[in-house]
Amino acid sequence: MALWLLRRLVQAGFVMLAMSAIVFIGLHAIGNPIDILISPEADQAERARAIAALGLDKPLWEQYWLFLQGALHGDLGRSFVFNEPALRLIAGRMPATLELAVTAVLLSVCIGLPLGLYAGLHPNSFTGRLVMTGSIFGFSLPSFWVGLMLIMVFAVTLGWLPSSGRGETISIAGVGWSFLTVDGWRHLLLPALNLALFNISLVLRLTRAGVRETLPLDYIRFARAKGLTPGRVIYVHVLRNILIPVVTVIGLEFGSTIAFSVVTESVFAWPGMGKLIIDSINVLDRPVIVAYLMITVALFVTINLVVDLLYTLLDPRVRLGGRR
């Protein structure tokens, strides 16, 4: 167990190292941030001073070396634009994104699981078929378009919900959270739904497939032959078994949800990490980009770890695999 954990962490370290190198080289190839950051009217001396201040006068390998040294001390550099530590900048935006992603994942479970159960238990009913057809839209409609449609219908036409921003927030430990206020929830709902749409369809189809697959199995028949109530058969015997793939996929999708929030955050002007990274790429703000990607990698690794641990909780055969 400890060895397994250590191996995972070392792997994660290597992934981060490789990724930071690629970003350094890649951004260097794209262009020079100085051209964007400094006004064209600046004279040669000002330009040189700015370049030196940002450390861009040194050769690329030396810049990377300095970055690595800083990274070991927990310093991922200062933003060229905001002149603030990149890490703090991202940490300030992270709650907004996490809040959005967590809400989206919760929505996808709360909506996808019951609908999938229904469609699996009544595969030939009209509603069951309707749900399955609907899920195809959830898969195939581009999320930016759905976002715009949601704004048009619920914000513009009906006027029920606001179209942008986080609304009223309550500050805990120095960062604001929208989900603690009613106004915040009103702002959160549309972007979260937009972000969740794909995952709702995914969870729904996965659940339905699991139910269809599990129902004819002998142990379900045996459970029924024991005289268990239909509720007990479905919510304990069937659900426990289909939760295994569902949890895996939700865990993996949580990472993608954070990554995909870029689009949703742009459409709904949600001030999260996604919006920050888009702005940073536009101005080639290298420290922020690198820091963002490092954090994303760390998040993915953590999520996968948690999923693996959950897996052992749900499936006893995994937990005891070593002791057979």
Partner: peptide
Amino acid sequence: RGHDIAMIFQDPMMTLNPVLRISTQMVEA
């Protein structure tokens, strides 16, 4: 079912739910 008429199945590897303890599966019966 289970009370007056019980059933035993063919494949013992498949008749017990793999993710529930034996105690759970017996107590619920």
